[in-house]
Write a protein that binds this DNA or RNA. Structure first.
Lengths: 170, 170
DNA sequence: ATTTTTCATATGAAAATTCATATGAAAATT
DNA sequence: AATTTTCATATGAATTTTCATATGAAAAAT
């Protein structure tokens, strides 16, 4: 008989909205995931891992970043990144130099080969973004990015990064 | 001498905007990461992994989800999720039932213990979201979530999920 | 009613990530 | 100027994730 479009009728509450449907972090993750997913294929074609692409993209146009700066930019844990960069170095895509002043630091930067390897991807990334944002128009697109930037600005310092341990197990 | 607030003066280009600074996927990742990070601590206090929380949250209020539906909701790959659910089951937080009609499917749902375990977290999650969005006001907050929903709607079907292999290695 | 195809989930071996901690060096303190 | 503290990065062992593939079952085709 008059069967609802939604699954069952156990509860009378008019809107069977799941908790998730109104949960910002859920939608942020979903949006982030699917948008990035699309670009995965493009990246895969070049033979790079997505994490590798991320790191290289962070270095694009930079004169060099410390490992810990890269951690924050690429959202990769220090121990993970340390190993990833080692691999990139072995593939001749990045190089390391110890800083002049502070010899504790290591500056990671792109080699010429690294530059060449991702220059095309960066262009494609920008084109991809254009496509994604087209339906929203100039106005809304800027508004979205600005809002995201503000969210980040307000929350990036609430959980000190890089120091691996975020304490998790029971 | 007149040292700039910005790092160096190698390049004269007025706006040393990095590629990333205008790159939507970057800001989506960052926002998603930092917002979720804050809640990590809350989750950790309960002895749950963040991935475990995600899965349990997806089951909250549901009559049961198939493994593959959970993959899309929690953004976890099928093989990973299969193992995670096994652990949850061993801890008595979820249970599995084979479907009536289609015995290929398995419905995962919360046990009473599972419900109890995350009920408090769900409340805290909602409170957390309130705090995050307060500075933006009712209007902008809804706009943000709506935009994210639209982004997801337009892109979630461009890279069929669940089938693990997204093809990556060289 | 077989055979083939498709779908949902599981699993083992390989790879990557994480935690905990070590190392090496600068800064701060005594 | 020695000692302690703090900071940046690296590394080994344990854990988790991933890829590739297997299994079991329904649907479709013959």
């Amino acid at each position: 008989m008059t069967e609802n479009t939604e699954t069952n009728t156990q509860e009378q509450e008019q809107a069977p909205l799941r908790f998730l449907d109104q949960y910002l972090p859920y939608w942020l993750s979903q949006a982030s995931y699917w948008i990035s997913s699309e670009f995965h294929r493009e990246v895969a074609r070049t033979g790079l891992t997505f994490a590798e692409w991320r790191v290289l993209a962070c270095l694009y146009g930079s004169a060099g970043e410390t490992i810990s700066a890269l951690c924050r930019l690429a959202l990769i844990k220090q121990s993970t990144l340390s190993k990833l960069v080692k691999r990139l170095e072995a593939s001749n895509l990045t190089l390391r130099q110890t800083t002049e002043g502070d010899r504790r630091q290591t500056l990671v930067s792109l080699t010429a080969e690294g530059q060449a390897r991702i220059a095309g991807l960066v262009d494609k990334a920008q084109a991809h973004q254009q496509e994604i944002l087209r339906p929203f128009g100039e106005e809304n697109s800027s508004a979205l990015i600005d809002t995201l930037k503000e969210l980040v600005r307000e929350h990036e310092h609430s959980g000190l990064f890089g120091h691996d341990s975020a304490r998790s197990r029971r």
